[in-house]
Amino acid sequence: SPEVQIAILTEQINNLNEHLRVHKKDHHSRRGLLKMVGKRRRLLAYLRNKDVARYREIVEKLG
C-alpha cells in the first residue's frame, strides 16, 4: 500500500540524513536521497488525489 511505502521511504530518508551529517562529501548517497524524496513526494501526491483521509492520517503519523 502507498502508506507502507511512504513509511519505509521516510525511515530510509531519516537514516540517510544522519549518514550525510557525518559524511558531508558523500554525493553518491545524496543523489540517492534526492531520488527517495522525489519518490515519496509522488506517492504522497497519489494518495492525496485518491483518498484525502488516508493522506491526512499518514502525514499526521509521520510528521
Rank of each mutant, 00 (worst) to 15 (best):
V37I: 14
R56M: 15
A45E: 14
Q5G: 04
R42I: 11
K25W: 10
K24W: 09
N15P: 01
L34N: 09
K61N: 06
S1W: 15
D26Y: 04
R42P: 00
Q5E: 10
I58F: 04
M36C: 05
R41S: 11
P2F: 14
Q5T: 07
L62F: 05
K61T: 09
K35T: 08
E57A: 12
L9W: 03
R21Q: 07
K25S: 12
Q12E: 07
G63H: 15
E11I: 13
L33W: 06
I6M: 02
L47P: 00
N17D: 05
V37S: 03
E60Y: 05
L62P: 01
V52L: 15
R42K: 12
L9R: 01
A7C: 15
H28R: 12
L20C: 05
H28W: 06
R21W: 02
R21G: 04
E57S: 05
P2H: 08
N17Y: 15
R30Y: 10
V37A: 05
L9F: 02
N17L: 15
I6L: 04
Y46A: 12
L43H: 01
K61L: 11
L47E: 00
R31W: 05
I13R: 00
R41K: 10
E57D: 08
I13T: 00
R31V: 10
L47S: 00
L43R: 00
R21Y: 03
L34T: 06
L62G: 02
L9E: 00
P2R: 05
Q12R: 11
L62H: 02
Y46K: 11
N14L: 10
L47I: 07
R40A: 04
K61P: 01
A45V: 08
E60L: 11
V37Y: 13
P2D: 06
V22G: 08
R30C: 15
R42F: 07
Y55T: 02
I6T: 01
L43M: 04
E18F: 08
R54P: 00
K50Y: 15
A7W: 15
L9Q: 01
G32D: 13
A7L: 15
G63R: 14
A53P: 06
L16K: 02
A7N: 07
I58T: 03
N17E: 11
V52W: 15
Q5C: 09
R54H: 05
R42M: 10
R31H: 10
L43E: 01
V4T: 09
V22Q: 10
L9A: 01
Y55N: 02
R40W: 07
L16I: 08
L34C: 13
H23P: 02
H28Y: 07
N14Y: 07
R54G: 04
I58N: 00
G63Y: 14
R30H: 13
Q12N: 06
N49V: 14
D51K: 01
N15C: 14
V59K: 03
T10W: 04
L20W: 03
Q12I: 13
L62Q: 02
R41A: 11
P2G: 03
L44I: 03
K24G: 14
L33N: 01
M36G: 01
A7E: 10
T10R: 02
R31N: 08
E11G: 04
L34F: 08
E3Q: 04
E18Y: 09
A45W: 10
L47G: 00
I6K: 01
S1Q: 07
R40F: 13
R56Q: 14
E57L: 05
G38R: 14
R41Y: 10
L34A: 11
I13Q: 01
D26G: 07
A45T: 07
H19M: 05
K24E: 08
D26L: 04
N15T: 11
K24D: 11
A53W: 04
K35C: 12
T10N: 04
L62K: 02
G63L: 15
L33Y: 08
A7D: 05
H19S: 04
V22L: 13
R48V: 03
V4R: 10
R56T: 11
Q12T: 06
K39G: 01
A7Y: 12
V4E: 14
N17Q: 13
L33A: 02
R31K: 12
L62A: 02
L9I: 06
L9N: 01
N17T: 14
L34I: 12
Q5D: 07
N49L: 14
E18Q: 10
L44N: 00
I6E: 00
G38C: 15
R48P: 00
V22D: 09
S1C: 14
I8R: 11
A45L: 11
S29F: 06
G32F: 14
G32V: 15
K25V: 06
